[in-house]
Write a protein that binds this DNA or RNA. Structure first.
Lengths: 200, 200
DNA sequence: TTAATTCCTTATCATACATCAATGAAATGA
DNA sequence: TCATTTCATTGATGTATGATAAGGAATTAA
C-alpha cells in the first residue's frame, strides 16, 4: 500500500488477471490507460453503499472486498472479490442500469481498486469494436458466474456448498470472518459451525 | 400451428417482444432474416437435452417451454419460456461456451421457435457493430435476469417466492403442472400445496 | 497491556420443510 | 368410452436448520 503503483505494473496486473483483455491492441490500451484511476479503500470503508448509483467499474489490485445486500435489516453476503480471484469490482446491476444500487461493497482489508467510469466505458465501446466485443464477453462471463451461483443455491445443500467452497478456495475460511461465509452459503453462523464440525 | 408463418409476421413479432432489437437498421435485418429458421416442437419433445451442445439460440413465437436440470436423478426446474414473457430460448451456458449442456429444454405445449445458429451469430457480430452491441445488451439482460433469480433464491423464502410469482404472473399456476412450479420454487409439491392453502 | 467488543462455538428448544403413505381428481391413451 | 396413469392434496412423522442464550476465544481500541 505504501509504494505508488506504476502504470506498467498496473497494466501488467490487469492483463494477467483478466485473460479477455488479451484481445485488445496497443491502440485500445492507448485510449484506456489515461482514463484509469487508482482508488484506495481502508479496511471497513465502502466502494459503494446501497442507494447510490455505481458510476465506476473496477479491477481489484490488492485486498479483499465483500458484496452484500441488506434485506429487512438482515445482511446477505453475495460474493467476495479477491485480487487473485474474481477481481472485477462493481455493483454490476446498478452499473449497467445506472440506477440506485441494492448492493453494498465494503473492504474487509485495506484494498486498491483500478477504476473506469460508466460514461468513459460507453464512449470506448463506441470508439472501438474490440472494446465493444470485450463488453459483451465481460457480460457473458458475469452471466456464467451468476449461473454457477444459481445452480449452487438451487441444486445443492448448504453442506455441499461449503464443501465446494473448501475445494475451490481452501484458504478462504481463514481469511474471512465466518459469519460472512455463513451468510454467503445461506445459513446462520450457528449452522455453519455445525457443518464445519461435521467435516472434522 | 396450422398456417405457415410469414416472414413479416415473424419479424414483427420478434421486434415487438424484444425492445433491444429496435436498435437494428434495415441493413442489419437484411443480413439476419435469411438465416432464421422456424422450429416446431410438439408437446413433450425437446429443444435440447443435457449432454448435447446448444448450437441454436431462439425466440419463442408460440407455446411454453420448461428449462430444467437433472442432478442426482432429480429434476430442478430453472425457468419457463413463454411467448408473451421471457421469449429468448437457449441453453445459454452451452451456447456461449459451445460445450455440452447441463440444461434440458422441453415443450410443455406445442411450440414454435425462431432460431439462428451460434456460428451465424458470431459472424454477424463481426459484420455489424450494432449487432455486436446487441450481443452485449442481450448478455447484460441475461445477467440481470440471473441476478433476480439469485436474490429470490438467497434472500426470500419459498412462500415469498410463490407470492412474488403470483404477482408478476398470476395465470402461470393455471398453465403449468404444479410440481414443475414447486421445483422452480425449490420445494416439494406437497410443500407448494401447503403454501397455496395458506394463501386462501 | 488491559478493557471492551466482536466473534465462534455449543446447547436447548422451536419450526419449517421433507419424507412416506393414502385418497381422490384429472389427464391420457387404448 | 373406460381403464390406466399421472397429479394434487392431506395427514402423520422425522429431520435439518433457525432462534435464543451463554461461555470462551479472538480481535480491536484505549
Amino acid at each position: 500500500m505504501r509504494k505508488p503503483i506504476s502504470t506498467e505494473q498496473l497494466l501488467l496486473h490487469v492483463q494477467n488477471m483478466i485473460p479477455l483483455l488479451a484481445q485488445l491492441n496497443e491502440e485500445d490500451w492507448g485510449m484506456i490507460v489515461p482514463l484509469l484511476k487508482v482508488v484506495k479503500l481502508k479496511k471497513g470503508t465502502y466502494f459503494i453503499k446501497d442507494g447510490q448509483v455505481c458510476h465506476q467499474i473496477g479491477f481489484l489490485y490488492q485486498g479483499i472486498l465483500r458484496v452484500f445486500h441488506l434485506v429487512n435489516g438482515k445482511e446477505f453476503s453475495s460474493y467476495f472479490n479477491f485480487a487473485s480471484r474474481n477481481p472485477i469490482v462493481s455493483a454490476f446491476e446498478s452499473f449497467l442500469l445506472q440506477s440506485p444500487s441494492s448492493e453494498n461493497i465494503h473492504a474487509l482489508e485495506d484494498s486498491v481498486v483500478i477504476t473506469i467510469t460508466f460514461a468513459q466505458l460507453q464512449s470506448l465501446y463506441e470508439q472501438s469494436p474490440r472494446i465493444q466485443k470485450l463488453g459483451r464477453l465481460m457480460a457473458e462471463q458475469n452471466y456464467l458466474l451468476a449461473m454457477e451461483r444459481i445452480k449452487s443455491l438451487q441444486f445443492h445443500s448448504a453442506t455441499d456448498r461449503y464443501s465446494a467452497l473448501l475445494k475451490i478456495y481452501p484458504q478462504l475460511i481463514n481469511k474471512i470472518p465466518h459469519h460472512y461465509v455463513a451468510s454467503y452459503l445461506g445459513v446462520t453462523p450457528e449452522s455453519l459451525s455445525r457443518i464445519r464440525k461435521s467435516f472434522e
